[in-house]
């Protein structure tokens, strides 16, 4: 199976601090769904930042290794070019444009598409999330958390990405809403064949949907394998207990 995303021996550090990632390797196959698990501070966010080109903004730098997207070396590529290549992201904390309307948020995500395609893609997203259509004129910041998460998802999907990075989607949302959003995410994956890398502190939810899983512990890959095996192993408890001393409720 061809790989959509390949991370090879990646080491990343921030200015004046030690390594946040140490020799990390990871593969997301084409159309595959991969979960990346780990406690707070394990390096998940750093890995996402490296892949999506946000590292320079946080004063980090790649010490070693590379990232390949659909066979192309994208290490150090600017964030906006990655999005145009088809690597979209649902960032942690959603990062929607609160002062813009729902429709404008989606238009921003579609800005790099040819003009004629925008309306069609907008319809596709509205079909996926009818709630967003109802609220299309509303300021995005005034919506509920779940709706904002849908908007962030819609904004990432509107450009028709080949790979979607989903960072801490469940954060601050009620379990029922999390479940509903994941269901929609999976149906998108199936119909469009989008590969996904799902980063979650809530291991239970992520393992339910992913085919393979990686556990990140203090900047290294502690374990990897198919989701069921990883879920059953003791490594998962160690990863959470070992660093932050807190067990996610669902493990």
């Amino acid at each position: 199976m061809a790989a959509m995303l390949e991370v090879e021996g990646l080491s990343v550090g921030y200015a004046r601090k030690g390594l946040a990632l140490d020799d990390v390797s990871l593969v997301v196959p084409t159309g595959g769904i991969v979960a990346l698990l780990g406690a707070n501070g394990a390096g998940k966010t750093t890995l996402i930042r490296t892949i999506t080109g946000l590292l320079p903004m946080h004063n980090g730098r790649v010490a070693q290794g590379r990232v390949r997207f659909a066979g192309v070396d994208i290490t150090g590529m600017a964030a906006h070019r990655l999005v145009r290549l088809g690597l979209a992201q649902v960032p942690e904390g959603r990062l929607i444009f609160k002062q813009l309307s729902v429709e404008e948020n989606l238009q921003v995500g579609a800005a790099f598409l040819p003009r004629g395609k925008v309306a069609e893609r907008l319809e596709a997203v509205f079909a996926l999330f009818p709630r967003l259509r109802e609220r299309r004129r509303q300021a995005a910041g005034l919506m509920s958390g779940g709706e904002q998460q849908m908007l962030a998802l819609g904004r990432a999907l509107i450009g028709g990405p080949r790979l979607l990075l989903v960072d801490e989607l469940s954060l601050g949302l009620a379990p029922l809403i999390v479940e509903a959003i994941y269901q929609q995410l999976m149906s998108v994956g199936e119909t469009l064949g989008t590969a996904m890398l799902i980063v979650e502190q809530n291991a239970h939810v992520a393992l339910e949907y992913a085919q393979t899983a990686y556990i990140l512990d203090r900047g290294r890959i502690a374990m990897s394998g198919d989701a069921a095996t990883v879920g059953a192993s003791s490594a998962i408890a160690d990863a959470y207990l070992g660093l932050a001393g807190e067990v996610p409720a669902d493990v």
Binding site: M57, V83, I96
Partner: peptide, 9 residues
Amino acid sequence: EAALVSGIN
């Protein structure tokens, strides 16, 4: 950051 992740240069 939101602009960056949305593909804005």
